[in-house]
Amino acid sequence: MVLLLAQEYAAVPSILTEYRCGICGRIFAGLPELEEHYAARHPEAAQPVVVALNLNGKPRELLVEPHWTLQRALQFSLGLTGTKHMCDRGVCGSCTVIMDGRAVLACTTLACECEGKTVQTVEGIAADPAWKPLIDAYCRWDAMQCGYCTPGFLVSAKALMDKNPNPTEDECRRALAGNICICGTYPRHAAAILEAALKMRKGA
């Protein structure tokens, strides 16, 4: 499953090859043509912008509208489904990504502000064999029930372990305090992280 995801993801071209009008759906071969189209047909609308960033270790271009959040851009421009939309206002952590080494909330981060940034999503973590023990541990400990919020927790856990490969249970709880699981799986997460940390230390 993880490998399949990585292959699908790799198939997405890094550089934009078509430019779609967000208002009438017409597709253009280049940004200048799209800009001309907006000027002629939708002069009062905000024009889309191209954002170049490093996503999961690869350069990516995204065509986004200026008010789009990073969560929305990842979903609607790239079809990535791991950065989840839950609260839409920075409360629940389901959209957590790692940006320039820090866990940030993609639902309160404008995509157009991500120019030049390095962003890692759960798909990138899943495709990295080094982090398989963390995913394995999440699955072994049932650190999910319905599973909707789980990718956000997993990204927060990875951000913690990047900085602190040997966290205590209390440090795990505090690091994940910004993630809400409506199913109430909270005690399982620390158990999973501690097991993964142990395995990763042994495997290092």
């Binding site: 791991g82 759960v122 999910m144």
Partner: peptide, 26 residues
């Protein structure tokens, strides 16, 4: 104990699609 769920990997890695996640061309 500790038997992974059959769909747990899909959930943990974000592969699992809920209704809100579907994006189709056009």
């Amino acid at each position: 104990r500790n038997v992974p769920g059959k769909l747990s990997y899909a959930l943990a890695t974000g592969v699992a699609k809920f209704g809100i996640d579907y994006v189709l061309p056009d």
